[in-house]
Structures are given as structure tokens and as C-alpha cells.
């Protein structure tokens, strides 16, 4: 990073994936479809590539951005994720770009205050709704998952009626379904 840059607590990698509709997710084709886009370690580096990135709302259906700490693959099976889980927030169309930005700024700025628990965040563009999620290492720790939920509510400024769901990755592996 350049001298004078504002270093982030962690180095992050952005990944992109797109699934052909109707093609059921399996770990092998998921791994083939996911592409590394960029890695950054400072606030300046983040903004310099983010400015050129297509906004989530402008992506075609079945696309995902995955922003994870460097060294953590955005897969359930990764060592950092395998006993973890995620908070899932379903959004009506049109909100994903703004809320995704709020979420990742909170993550990069270490606003969640849960030590090293956060693994990454995902925005999923789908046909009828969009979904954002934040992944953490320990699905069984209620104190941590509650704190993540409360910060998520605050930074997204969600309407009270928004339904949030926590799902352990072991359950996603069992039913082979992410949401």
C-alpha cells in the first residue's frame, strides 16, 4: 500500500460469481464459477477499484459479489466457515446497491466489534428479490450472532418489519441450499 494510505484492519478479497439459472449449486461448479476480482488493504485501494465496479443493482440476475477476508474462500467448506453461519436479509428489488455499500463499509471499518468473528459478506442478485448476508466463524455462539444482528440492523437502517434469518453453514450443506 502507498505511504499515507489508511490501512484496514484486514486485507480483503472481492469475488464474483454468476450461476446459470436452473443450474443447481454444487461445490464443484460453484468453485469453477467464482472469480477473484481484487484484493485491497487500505481505504484508498478500496475506493479506487470500487468506483469502477458495477453496482449490485445493475448486475444481471443470479450474480453475487462476495467480499471476504484474504485467505477465506467464500465457501461453506472453508476452514474459517465450516462451523460458522450467516445472517440473511431479503430485500425488495432496488435496495441492494445502497445497503450492500452500508454493510461493507461497516465491515471494513470494524464496526461489528466481534473480534475476528466476521468472515465476509455476500450480495446476491436474484429474479424477484435480492439478498445480503454476513458470515461469521461460530454459528453456535449466540452472544456473537446477536451482536452481529444488532449492528447489521443499525448500519442497514432496516425497517422494523424486515425479517432476518440466521443459518448455520452445516444446515446449508445438508439441504444444499444457501437461502
Amino acid at each position: 500500500i502507498n505511504p499515507g494510505d489508511h490501512k484496514l484492519q484486514f486485507v480483503y478479497t472481492l469475488w464474483f460469481s454468476r450461476r446459470s439459472p436452473g443450474n443447481k449449486a454444487s461445490s464443484s461448479n460453484y468453485e469453477d464459477n467464482i472469480k477473484m476480482v481484487a484484493t485491497f488493504a487500505s481505504v484508498e485501494q478500496f475506493w479506487s477499484f470500487y468506483s469502477f465496479l458495477t453496482r449490485p443493482c445493475d448486475l444481471t440476475s443470479s450474480s453475487d459479489y462476495h467480499l471476504f477476508k484474504q485467505g477465506i474462500k467464500p465457501m461453506w467448506e472453508d476452514d474459517a466457515n465450516k462451523t460458522g453461519g450467516k445472517w440473511i436479509v431479503r430485500l425488495r428489488k432496488g435496495l441492494a446497491s445502497r445497503l450492500w455499500e452500508n454493510l461493507i463499509l461497516a465491515m471494513l471499518g470494524e464496526q461489528f466489534m466481534v473480534g475476528d468473528e466476521i468472515c465476509g459478506a455476500v450480495v446476491s442478485i436474484r429474479f424477484a428479490e435480492d439478498i445480503i448476508s454476513i458470515w461469521n466463524r461460530t454459528a453456535s455462539d449466540r452472544t456473537i450472532t446477536s451482536r452481529i444482528r444488532d449492528t447489521l440492523k443499525r448500519v442497514l437502517n432496516l425497517p422494523l418489519s424486515t425479517i432476518m434469518e440466521y443459518k448455520a453453514h452445516t444446515d446449508s450443506i445438508k439441504d444444499q441450499s444457501s437461502f
Binding site: 502507498n2 499515507g4 494510505d5 489508511h6 490501512k7 484496514l8 484492519q9 481505504v43 484508498e44 478500496f46 475506493w47 479506487s48 468506483s51 452500508n102 463499509l105 461497516a106 471494513l108 471499518g109 470494524e110 464496526q111 448500519v155
Partner: peptide, 21 residues
């Protein structure tokens, strides 16, 4: 150790910094 914490407002200001262009 200490953690590097950034508030949203600060990060938004940094968006327009010449170093981030």
C-alpha cells in the same frame, strides 16, 4: 491489540480523496 476502526462518515469522505482516484 488495538483495532483500526473507521466510521462510515470518514470512509465516505475518503471516497473523494485524490489518493483514492
Amino acid at each position: 491489540g488495538t483495532r483500526i476502526i473507521y466510521e462510515r462518515n470518514f470512509l465516505m469522505q475518503m471516497r473523494n480523496s485524490p489518493l483514492a482516484q
